[in-house]
C-alpha cells in the first residue's frame, strides 16, 4: 500500500487527519501517565541515599529530554519550511515551541524542587541546569520573534533562521557551559555520578517519557489545527466547516 504523502502536506487534509489522530494520542498519554506515576510512586523502591525526594525524576528527566528533543524537531520543521516553502511544516514548528518551552520550564522547576533537599539550595549553577535555562531563553526568543511579526510568512521564515542559528549554537553553548562549570569546580555540585538504578525506576521513567511523547504529539496536533484555522480562515474549506458547525 502506498501512501500519498503530498495529500497530507496540504493544511486542509492535515487538519482532518490530525483531528482523527488527537484522541488516540491523548488517551495513550493519559493511560501511560497513570501507569508511569503508579510505578513511580508505588512500585519503585525508596532510594537509600536520596529517600523519597528522588521520585521527582519521574517528571524531571522526561521533561528535560523532551525539552531538548522538541527544540531539534522544531528547528527541523522550521528549516524544512524555510528551504521548501512548505507552509504546514512552518506551522508545526510554531506549534511545537510552547510545548517545548513548557517542558523546559518543568525541567527547571522540578530541578529546583529536587535540588533543595539534595543540595540544600533551590538553584545551583550546575552545567545542566544552566544549559536548560539557556534553552528556555532560546525558546522564548523564538516565540517572541514570531509574535512580534504580523505577516505570517515573514514570521515563519524569521523564526526558522533564529531556530537554526540556535541549533548550531546549542552544542557550542552546552560545551562552553560545561567547560565554565569545571573551571569553577568549587562552587558546583557534581550530579554526574548516577546511583545504580533499580529496574522498576528505569521502567517508570521510560513509561513517563512515552507519556510525555504522546502528550506532546497530541498538543502539537491540536495547536497546529488552531494555527491552520486561523491562517486559512478565508479559504473555502474553512468557510464550509463554519457553515456545517452552525
Amino acid at each position: 500500500m502506498s501512501i500519498n504523502w503530498y495529500k497530507y502536506a496540504s493544511p486542509a487534509s492535515f487538519y482532518f487527519l490530525a483531528g482523527r489522530m488527537i484522541p488516540y494520542f491523548s488517551i495513550a498519554a493519559i493511560v501511560l501517565l497513570i501507569i508511569g506515576l503508579y510505578i513511580g510512586f508505588f512500585v519503585a523502591p525508596t532510594d537509600f541515599q536520596q529517600g523519597e525526594a528522588y521520585r521527582i525524576i519521574f517528571i524531571h528527566v522526561p521533561a528535560a529530554w523532551m525539552s531538548m528533543f522538541l527544540y531539534l524537531v522544531m528547528a527541523f520543521w522550521a528549516g524544512i519550511g524555510l528551504a521548501f516553502n512548505t507552509r504546514l511544516s512552518s506551522m508545526v514548528a510554531t506549534a511545537i515551541a510552547p510545548t517545548g518551552a513548557m517542558f523546559t520550564f518543568i525541567a527547571l522547576w522540578t530541578g529546583a524542587w529536587w535540588g533543595k533537599p539534595m543540595w540544600g539550595a533551590w538553584w545551583v549553577w550546575d552545567a545542566r541546569l544552566t544549559s536548560e535555562l539557556i534553552l528556555l531563553f532560546l525558546y522564548i526568543g523564538f516565540m517572541s520573534l514570531q509574535a512580534a511579526i504580523d505577516d505570517p510568512r515573514r514570521a515563519d521564515k524569521a523564526g526558522a533562521v533564529i531556530a537554526l542559528v540556535g541549533v548550531v549554537n546549542i552544542p557550542i553553548i552546552y560545551f562552553s557551559v560545561q567547560w565554565w562549570n569545571t573551571l569553577h569546580q568549587g562552587a558546583s555540585v557534581s550530579v554526574t555520578q548516577s546511583p545504580k538504578m533499580a529496574a522498576s525506576m528505569l521502567v517508570g521513567m521510560l513509561i513517563m517519557s512515552l507519556a510525555a511523547w504522546m502528550y506532546s504529539i497530541a498538543m502539537i496536533l491540536m495547536r497546529t489545527r488552531v494555527i491552520i484555522l486561523e491562517r486559512e480562515r478565508h479559504t473555502a474549506w474553512v468557510a464550509e466547516l463554519k457553515g456545517a458547525a452552525r
Binding site: F137, S144, A148, V177
Partner: peptide
C-alpha cells in the same frame, strides 16, 4: 528589546571564554 532576547543567549560562549 527583542534583539536582546534573541542575541544575548547566543553571546554566552563568548562571555564564558
Amino acid at each position: 528589546v527583542l534583539v536582546s532576547l534573541l542575541v544575548l543567549p547566543l553571546y554566552i560562549p563568548v562571555l564564558i571564554f
